[in-house]
């Protein structure tokens, strides 16, 4: 597993790449800019990437992170890839529901189901 600063770890699987946020809180503008750069570089490495983003460690985020996810999803889909989110804390999941972002993101309970969801969609 590769560790990339700031704040993510990346696991390159045979079919699916998993990016895990490792911080409990994602708030700072500088963090979000750093995340965007780090995640973009991972996306660019694999054409048609199947990407799972693991929120298992995250307990708090702001709307700026929602914006980051939307920008990432556009990059993934523009490159012919697929994106799934997983392991989202119930309080944070409520933010996705309230903002109706559950309509545009595929959200799974855990990494296993997210990985299965992406590999079975071929």
């Amino acid at each position: 597993m590769a560790s990339i600063k700031p704040n993510i770890s990346v696991q390159y699987g045979e079919d699916v790449t998993v990016i895990a946020f490792t911080d409990e809180k994602i708030l700072e503008e500088s963090d979000i800019r750093g995340l965007q750069n780090s995640i973009s570089s991972v996306i660019e490495q694999t054409e048609g990437i199947k990407l799972v983003m693991d929120f298992g460690s995250v307990k708090f985020l702001s709307s700026a992170v929602l914006g980051l996810l939307i920008r990432i999803s556009k990059r993934v889909y523009e490159g012919g890839g697929q994106l799934a989110l997983c392991s989202i804390d119930p309080k944070i999941l409520q933010i996705f529901k309230i903002t109706r972002l559950t309509n545009i993101f595929d959200i799974y309970d855990d990494i296993e189901s997210a990985t299965k969801g992406l590999t079975e969609s071929d």
Partner: peptide, 11 residues
């Protein structure tokens, strides 16, 4: 819904 900004006041 697909815009990156504009959710702060709503939240």
């Amino acid at each position: 819904l697909y815009k990156a900004d504009g959710r702060g006041i709503f939240l």
